[in-house]
């Protein structure tokens, strides 16, 4: 049974990684066709770094996702503290509101926000072009907020409420108590919420596609337009570099965590 499981697991991992291998191999291909490997070259990487417009699109994506996840993290963490202290009835309302963007399909979220922006922009403000960088940013903050809230709330629940009371008894102002005690306790939730929000934002295509105008385009929206025009092999080079970056980051995070766990075990052993 265990052996059969291992074989299935290996096969599934091969299945999950085959398309990525195809893209990585294509980034070293001399030819343009993804289906035929005609020779090894690093030219695509050179072309990638010379392509201002492509790097600009990556910059756009990074700008939106960094801004949106930062704002959502600060805003979400403070809101979570507020929600945590609400009475049960209102808390339920808040959590239901939080669930809406989580359970709604992305396409519905995208369509509904785009209709709102167009409705307010063209019908109420008389703008000709109502979809801009700002609408994109608002949309990203909106779908990032629940990730932060849902990561921070459990940490607040786990936290011993008397800790803040103790801090205030010892002379902390509520603000000091928050920054020195509460924030310290909920930090793991804040960090994982921020990371999740950032990755969701960076890779989001569906919602961005509906709420962005022609004057501010992110990388995934541009890649989607390759349905009509042929894909440039430089994109594969970019994919490979991003893959490497994320792989290294994730491995590093794992190793750091493992080291921390070992230290804890060692400390307990003493």
């Amino acid at each position: 049974m265990k052996r059969a499981n291992r074989i299935i697991t290996v096969l599934i991992f091969i299945f999950l990684y085959i398309p990525m291998v195809v893209l990585v191999v294509a980034s070293f291909n001399t030819g343009k066709d993804i289906t035929q490997f005609s020779g090894f070259t690093l030219r695509q990487y050179q072309r990638l770094f010379q392509d201002r417009s492509l790097l600009g699109l990556l910059g756009n994506s990074l700008l939106v996702s960094i801004l949106a996840s930062l704002i959502a993290t600060v805003f979400g963490t403070l809101s979570a503290v507020g929600i945590h202290n609400l009475n049960p009835k209102l808390r339920k309302v808040a959590m239901t509101l939080t669930d809406i963007p989580m359970t709604n399909p992305d396409i519905v979220t995208g369509v509904s926000l785009s209709l709102l922006f167009v409705f307010v922009g063209t019908k109420m403000l008389g703008q000709r072009n109502s979809l801009t960088f700002w609408t994109l940013l608002i949309a990203h903050i909106t779908f990032n907020l629940p990730y932060v809230i849902l990561n921070v709330m459990p940490k607040l629940k786990q936290m011993d409420a008397s800790l803040t009371d103790a801090a205030m008894d010892l002379g902390c102002t509520p603000l000091q108590a928050f920054f020195q005690v509460t924030l310290h306790e909920i930090m793991p939730g804040v960090v994982s919420g921020a990371i999740m929000a950032f990755t969701m934002s960076l890779d989001d295509f569906v919602i961005s596609y509906f709420v962005t105008g022609l004057d501010f385009i992110t990388l995934p929206v541009e890649i989607y337009s390759y349905t009509k025009k042929p894909i440039q092999p430089k994109i594969y080079a970019m994919f490979t570099l991003l893959f490497l970056l994320i792989f290294v980051l994730m491995t590093a995070m794992n190793l750091i965590q493992l080291a921390a766990d070992k230290k804890k075990v060692a400390a307990r052993g003493k």
Binding site: P19, I34, P220, I223, I246
Partner: peptide
């Protein structure tokens, strides 16, 4: 988790 962080558009194109 790693594939979830990579562009799903490109992976589908692959």
């Amino acid at each position: 988790m790693l594939p979830m962080c990579m562009s799903f558009l490109l992976r589908t194109l692959a």
